[in-house]
Amino acid sequence: MTLDTLKENEKGIIESISDESLAIQLLAMGFILGEEVKVERIAPLNDPMIITSGDNYISIRKKDAKQIKINKT
């Protein structure tokens, strides 16, 4: 499943990121393959969402979150 389908406060392990440039970007922002990601908050109009992994806290649009394959935990 992909990250955009998670609800607020749900978590998953990042498996892969299909878009390479997005993968490089997210990796550098601390969203590392094999680590846990949590959906902290979803904006009132259902997009974008705030996600956290470790001490990293970012906002991401759903169309980009769709590129992130996760394993729900």
Binding site: L22, Q25, I50, N56, Y57, S59, R61
Partner: peptide, 8 residues
């Protein structure tokens, strides 16, 4: 992509 860090 629109990724934006939420600073403390």
């Amino acid at each position: 992509a629109f990724t934006l860090e939420m600073p403390i």
